[in-house]
Amino acid sequence: DAPDEFRDPLMDTLMTDPVRLPSGTIMDRSIILRHLLNSPTDPFNRQTLTESMLEPVPELKEQIQAWMR
């Protein structure tokens, strides 16, 4: 099983494109984008959230890719 820090906190699946929300939570980009289609909010604190506020986490993405090899 993947380490917890590699798993999306909402869907508990392996992240492939991790992004940091303004709240500091790291999620998979595809999952948070799907959530934003229904509700333009951070799913953990209900603060306003837009796609432009998502910050890529390239170092975590590299760690996940290395773990998958």
Rank of each mutant, 00 (worst) to 15 (best):
S30E: 12
M68G: 06
W67R: 04
T13Q: 08
Q47A: 12
E51Q: 10
P58R: 09
E5F: 12
M15Y: 03
A2G: 07
P43D: 01
L14M: 09
E5M: 13
G24T: 02
Q63P: 00
E55H: 09
N45K: 06
D12L: 14
R20I: 07
L21G: 00
E59Y: 12
P18D: 02
N45R: 06
R29V: 06
Q47P: 02
P3I: 05
D17A: 15
N45D: 09
E55L: 11
A2I: 15
V19G: 02
L49T: 04
L33P: 00
N38Y: 14
L14T: 06
D12K: 15
M15F: 01
D28E: 11
R20E: 03
E62Q: 13
E5C: 15
R46C: 15
H35W: 15
L10F: 09
W67Q: 03
M11G: 09
M15P: 01
T25E: 08
I32F: 03
D42A: 02
M15H: 01
I64V: 07
D17E: 08
T41P: 03
R69Q: 14
L49R: 00
R69P: 07
P3H: 05
I31W: 08
L49S: 00
D4S: 15
D12Y: 15
M53L: 08
R29S: 07
T41W: 15
T25M: 15
M11W: 10
I31L: 06
M11K: 09
P40L: 12
L36T: 01
S23Q: 03
I31R: 02
T50D: 13
I26T: 05
L54I: 07
F6T: 02
M15D: 00
T16Q: 12
R34C: 13
E59R: 10
R20D: 00
I64N: 01
L54Y: 02
D8N: 03
L33T: 09
S23N: 07
Q47M: 13
L33C: 11
A2Q: 06
T48K: 13
R46F: 15
M27P: 00
K61S: 08
D8M: 03
I64K: 00
P56Q: 08
V19K: 01
S39V: 08
T13P: 02
L60F: 06
L21V: 02
D12P: 03
N38V: 14
P9C: 08
L33H: 06
P56I: 06
E62C: 12
P43E: 00
E62T: 10
M11L: 10
R69C: 13
P56H: 07
R7C: 11
V57T: 05
P22Y: 05
I32A: 05
Q63E: 10
L14R: 03
D4A: 15
S30K: 13
Q65H: 13
T13C: 15
S52M: 10
D1Q: 14
K61V: 08
L21I: 04
I26W: 04
T16H: 11
T16A: 10
S39N: 11
P56K: 06
Q47I: 09
P58E: 09
P3C: 08
E51R: 09
T41R: 08
A66K: 13
F44C: 06
A66L: 13
D28W: 06
L10M: 11
H35E: 07
L60M: 08
Q47R: 11
E62V: 11
D12C: 15
M68C: 12
P9G: 07
L33M: 13
F44I: 06
R20A: 05
V19T: 04
Q63K: 15
R34P: 00
D8T: 03
L14V: 13
E51C: 09
L14P: 06
V19L: 04
T25S: 09
R34D: 08
K61Q: 11
F44D: 02
N45M: 07
T48G: 11
M15N: 02
Q63G: 05
Q63N: 08
L10N: 03
W67F: 09
F44G: 02
P56V: 07
L60R: 01
L54S: 00
T50A: 09
P40K: 14
F6W: 09
W67A: 04
Q65E: 15
L54F: 06
D12Q: 14
A66Q: 13
E5R: 14
P9I: 07
T41D: 07
D12W: 15
S23C: 07
D8Y: 03
T50G: 06
T25Y: 15
M11H: 09
P9V: 04
L14W: 06
D8G: 03
M53H: 06
R34S: 11
D4Y: 15
M27S: 02
T50K: 11
R69I: 12
I26K: 01
L37S: 12
A66S: 11
N45S: 14
E59G: 11
D28A: 03
P3T: 05
L37R: 14
R29H: 06
M15K: 02
R34Q: 13
V19A: 01
P18T: 01
Q63T: 09
M27C: 08
L60Y: 02
V57Y: 08
P40E: 11
F44S: 03
L49G: 00
H35Q: 06
M27N: 00
R7V: 07
F6S: 01
L60T: 01
P9Q: 06
D1E: 14
D1L: 14
F6Y: 11
I32D: 00
R69G: 11
V57P: 02
H35S: 06
P40N: 13
L54D: 01
L14S: 03
H35D: 00
M11V: 09
I32E: 00
A66T: 10
D17I: 05
A66C: 11
D1V: 14
A66V: 10
P22G: 02
G24R: 04
P43R: 02
Q65G: 08
P43A: 03
Q47K: 11
P40D: 10
F44A: 02
E62Y: 13
L33A: 07
E5P: 09
D42G: 02
M11Y: 11
I64W: 02
T48Q: 12
D8I: 03
